[in-house]
Design a protein around this nucleic acid. Structure first.
Length: 299
DNA sequence: CCTTGTGTTCTCCG
DNA sequence: CCGGAGAACACAAG
């Protein structure tokens, strides 16, 4: 579920809670989740051993984000890279005081028994416990013993630019889109020009900029590229500010757990009327992904 | 029961 | 190399 705004909220939540904490003990219940990325990864007990031995006794120094990935920097230049994919979540439970919970998936947050059957990695920290849960097990947490080993692997090789960095300019976006032969929605989902936009924010950005998701990326006019560029940035920033508009990401346990109010205008609203022109919103499939748009005011 | 849908990304074909 | 389909897996809902 998590796209850039949700991961960014998770990142800042983790930063507030686990930073400077030592790792006392680590448990890995699903070896596959620490054994590599990709669909064909196989469980490796050697990786599990390296993961546990390498992280135990170290301390969390920083929590950063690249696209939808979390980067945990540990003492001694050790690094953990986590991807939540669709259903991954991190939950932190302090030993005492306020119970803060954070994650990527709303269902299990309300079921606060931890660990549960979807808990695959547990970090016992000085002041609390950090759980990595993932129902569908597409996510992963990878361990790198050094800066060199991390850079050598080039984990982020295929990713495009961060949409909220200054380097993501209209000029860059224009030039990049010219080279693409596929639909604009496919390009947004592909992560290789601009990262962090998933199904929700792709549909929302295209609606906001009045562009049909089926348009060929290279056919966008200068004006359309400018509108899409600013819509992506504006919508992502608003979503981060709202705490992630699509799902709960970081909050206190005592807050209303059903509060997943989405601010989107088209995502998940097929059949309802367009908020702009009141024509019924249409649903189609693009690359096996549900896509909702207004056939009248998106051109 | 079976079918469909799910916020991601990698791999395999053509 | 490129683009699209299917796969990785586990549910919930209809």
């Amino acid at each position: 579920m998590p796209e850039l705004p949700e991961v960014e909220n998770l990142r800042s939540g983790l930063e507030k809670t686990i930073l400077n904490q030592g790792i006392l003990k680590v448990e890995v219940r699903k070896p596959k989740l620490v054994s590599g990325r990709g669909t064909l990864r196989t469980a490796s007990s050697k990786k599990v051993k390296e993961f546990i031995q390498g992280t135990t006794g170290e301390k969390f120094i920083a929590v950063e984000r690249r696209a939808k990935n979390l980067i945990f920097k540990l003492s001694h230049d050790k690094i953990l890279i986590a991807h939540l994919k669709m259903t991954g979540q991190f939950v932190y439970l302090p030993k005492t005081g306020k119970k803060s919970v954070m994650g990527g998936h709303p269902i299990e947050i309300s079921e606060t028994t931890l660990p549960n059957k979807h808990t695959h990695i547990t970090f016992h920290l000085q002041s609390g416990t950090l759980y990595f849960n993932d129902t569908r097990m597409f996510g992963y947490v990878l361990y790198y013993p050094s800066l060199e080993s991390f850079e050598k692997e080039n984990h982020f090789e295929k990713l495009g630019l961060e949409p909220l960095e200054k380097s993501f300019t209209v000029k860059y976006f224009t030039e990049s889109l010219k080279t693409k032969k596929s639909k604009i929605k496919s390009v947004l989902l592909s992560q290789d020009i601009v990262t962090g936009v998933g199904n929700i924010y792709a549909d929302e950005s295209l609606f906001e900029s009045g562009i049909l998701p089926t348009r060929n990326a290279s056919s966008l006019t200068k004006d359309e590229v400018e509108k899409l560029h600013s819509a992506i940035i504006r919508i992502l920033k608003q979503a981060i500010k709202a705490g992630g508009s699509s799902v709960a990401t970081y909050r206190l346990l005592d807050e209303s757990r059903g509060n997943y109010a989405r601010q989107h205008k088209v995502y998940g609203k097929a059949g309802l009327n367009c908020p702009r022109c009141h024509h019924p919103l249409q649903k189609i499939l693009i690359q096996t992904r549900t896509t909702v748009f207004c056939p009248r005011c998106q051109k």
